[in-house]
Amino acid sequence: MLKTRVIPILTFNGIGLVKTKQFSNPRMVGNPVQAARVYNQRGVDELVFIDIYASEQNRKINLKLVSEVIKECYMPVAIGGGISTIDDITNLLKIGADKVVIKTKALTDPDFIKKAVSIFGSQCITISVDAIAHHNNYKIYNRQGIDLSLNEFTNSMMACEVGELIVNSVDNDGMMNGYNFELINTVLKNTNLPVIAVGGGGEMAHYKQLMTETKIEAVGSSSIFHFTQFTPRDIKNELKQINVPVRL
């Protein structure tokens, strides 16, 4: 039986790991290589590492650092941040990334995504969907001034045959007050792709609620691992109690 994945999300600012609240106020939370080592020892299902300021600051991701992060990992790793060329993807795969996570380029140039899928395969291309509530609906949050609804964006990415969506609620990001079930259900209803739900996990009850309120099969989290004593394994133990299939 397919196991529900619990995935630590590491967000990076070019210097160290940071954690935002509602995509603002980044707070330094540590060293990425050390974090990757700990998560590997803990046997996490997968790891996501994103340089969240690379596109905005017009930087390329630091390949040397990413390579050191990946070296610690014997589980699948997805890497994102500032990816805008085929070479960027090739370079990440060469140092051992299994998937790449793309957002800004997907918003500005869907044809690039189509091309990337044709070269690297669907399974390699994960799209970050950052949704923010807007007039009883959701828009895609971005700093490029692109006006796109959630469904328009996910439809366009499905047409490109991407492999997976990371759906992050901007409103819930870093608030540790629970997941946005409505957002997750909206996306799950609209697509047949695997989805990782992100944004809002802060205590054990939130993960149980997410599993009972939605049919999600992968959950990403960050704050809870940085700011509480809970580990991915604690979450999986908790989920097992309500018969969610997990890998322990």
Partner: peptide
């Protein structure tokens, strides 16, 4: 179910093979 088949899933071994002793273990599929 969603496509791609992505994540950890349990294998069930059949016939004798290098995998026999890994019956019911989880491996990563994509």
């Amino acid at each position: 179910l969603r496509i791609p088949h992505m994540g950890w899933n349990t294998i069930e071994t059949v016939n004798q093979s290098y995998l026999t002793e890994f019956n019911q273990k989880d491996f990563y599929f994509i």
